[in-house]
Nucleic acid binder design. Structure first.
Lengths: 142, 142
DNA sequence: TTAAACCCTATTGAATTAGTATGAATTATA
DNA sequence: TATAATTCATACTAATTCAATAGGGTTTAA
């Protein structure tokens, strides 16, 4: 019942990009250094974000990545679902799945539904710009 | 980010025991048959519940297991944490851990804390007797 | 032309998952 | 007392996932 490094790193990566407002692309190496994450591993993760259109890449020297949209357009849920896959605590409550063949245990199903709702309620209501704000107030010592 | 079969089976197992009020022990085989779970695997799971004192065992023929306490004394959280281990979405927010060495990313930490609270808020506020009630109203067609 | 960056795919060691398998110990009952 | 039903204990395993590492190839600014 853990979020893997993939999702956690992706979130830190996106926050790192969101914290920057220079307008210039930021290289993997730079982010990996700041976040103390293997740059080769980060490359794989950002490629997922790239092909999903979450970031824009600039190749060649002075290249790197930047957010494609404004921070308030990304929820934590979007980022985690993209990198982690579904956040549903059991596959039965995943959107696509209608039935898992054991509707007789509806009581436990109810638990998973509530858990799922609670998880979604958190991740779908925090945006990258919330994270930026939190991070800034944190770094300034409040 | 999934609850494993261990936790899910444990919950169905405990609910199965809670649904019974005959006062007689119920065998693994019986439960395994009803729940369509491998009895050998269930054995392993119930042994965890047994050594934690959640259930009482009776050996020999006509033996089996029964709940040690009333259903309202077990929360879903107790059962899942025992069988799954911590339900914290990242190890940083686990009770025992004070610091994970990267307090600089407090923004993402805040996400994990909220997620943790949301998860605990669900599982710690549902008891086995809630499950029994849900299950009964489900089976009766409401 | 060079080198800094992104892009792509394969490999790997460790851990976890979801069970199987085997047999021992206990005990009600015929 | 013999049998069989049950719990108890431990070892094993195939498949998958995790968290990287490795080794290149492609693009492009300077």
């Amino acid at each position: 019942m853990k979020i893997s490094t993939k999702g956690r790193y992706a979130l830190r990566l996106m926050l790192d990009l969101a914290m920057d407002n220079s307008g210039k692309p930021i290289s993997i190496k730079e982010i990996a250094g700041r976040q103390e994450i293997s740059d080769k591993y980060l490359e794989q993760i950002i490629s997922i974000l790239n092909s999903a259109g979450f970031v824009r890449s600039v190749r060649g020297p002075q290249g790197g990545y930047m957010l494609k949209n404004d921070p308030q357009n990304y929820t934590v849920g979007m980022i985690l679902r993209l990198t982690e896959g579904s956040l549903a605590p059991v596959s039965c409550v995943e959107d696509k799945i209608a039935d898992c063949g054991r509707m007789e245990n509806c009581a436990t199903m109810n638990v998973w539904k509530r858990l799922n709702d609670a998880i979604n309620g958190v991740v779908d209501n925090i945006t990258l710009s919330d994270l930026v704000e939190w991070q800034k107030s944190c770094e300034s010592g409040f």
